[in-house]
Design a protein around this nucleic acid. Structure first.
Lengths: 178, 178
DNA sequence: GTCCGGTCCTTCGGGCCCGAAGGAACAGGG
DNA sequence: CCCTGTTCCTTCGGGCCCGAAGGACCGGAC
């Protein structure tokens, strides 16, 4: 990690200047801190440029998208697919239901289950919105070559599997100890 | 984008199956959707494994870290460095102030400014916490080679600059139109 | 038939999050 | 000395976010 590397962000240079003497892994730090910076920046960009016109939050948009791709789902699977907790999912679905984009059904053989699906309005909304969303994704990603985009996606998948593996390892550890 | 690529996540395969016939940029979509998946997963992992013991949220932790690296800062610069809005920063600083980790001062020549800095407790907290945080970063990143970690960081910087460039372009556009 | 552990969804409490609007302070022009 | 426009921080309102706890329901054991 050369503090004079012109590619570094100002914040990264400042960190090396102030913490460079400590025994830290600056390479891992650069990779992960830029993961959060980039993710938050892209998310805010999308919320302002694509979603704000429909008064949709990022998470609401992801819920519509997941329901579009997977069709009607049980509530717990929806939360897992969106990547939020069940209480959060309850709240977001309630908001979308109030706006008529999503529907809850409770007539399954198992009386605990709640099934969630798009309404006609919700389907029209995501079919209209997603192509515009993807066009903006394309515009941002175009600053990387196609090969870089694929390499990026592949490395992020590794990271994701690493986290989930550690999580499961921790669970097994806890279970073994108990 | 081969739907049979064994590296794809199940969710990515489902998307190709359901949306594959539409004229979308699936390469950009893979790169960006995995950006959010990975970022959210790593964040939750860190919150649970490293921060929960100190009852610190991710954002509170980042505030402490930024103040550690930069020293006393004006409130608006703190918000920008952390990557949150000024109202959010007000709230987080209030929380941290109530817990005695951070201090607000208002004695600048310019009476509007508020300067924020770590207290002694806050300094001890971040000095204790950050090495453990970084060890966990290292453990996750170790699933990528050093070269991959650097390539990942570099691509994320490009993406970040792309977003910020588009943002500034939009601002210039709005100003020119007005 | 009645427990009883497990699995659902939801509610609750506290915190983060943003845009819009409020209110104090500054700076420059009349 | 005022205005007037700008730049700060904060407050407000509504939404997202999670862990813990509540309440309904299921299924197998007795």
């Amino acid at each position: 990690m050369d503090p004079d590397d012109p590619d570094l962000l100002p914040a990264e240079r400042k960190v090396l200047e102030r913490l460079g003497h400590l025994p830290l892994d600056f390479r891992a730090m650069a990779a992960l801190s830029n993961l959060f910076r980039a993710s938050a920046a892209v998310r805010r960009h999308m919320e302002r440029r694509v979603l704000a016109a429909d008064r949709l939050s990022w998470t609401s948009f992801v819920v519509l998208w997941v329901l579009w791709v997977w069709g009607e789902m049980e509530s717990r699977d929806l939360a897992a697919a969106v990547g939020i907790s069940k209480p959060t999912s309850t709240g977001v679905v309630t908001t979308l239901e109030r706006r008529g984009l999503v529907r809850r059904r409770r007539n399954a053989p198992d009386g605990r289950m709640v099934r969630v699906s798009l309404t006609e309005d919700g389907l029209r909304k995501i079919e209209d919105l997603f192509p515009r969303f993807n066009a903006e994704e394309r515009a941002l990603a175009s600053h990387l070559s196609p090969g870089e985009q694929e390499a990026l996606a592949a490395m992020l998948r590794s990271l994701l599997r690493a986290v989930e593996g550690e999580g499961r390892a921790a669970v097994r550890q806890a279970e073994a100890t108990a």
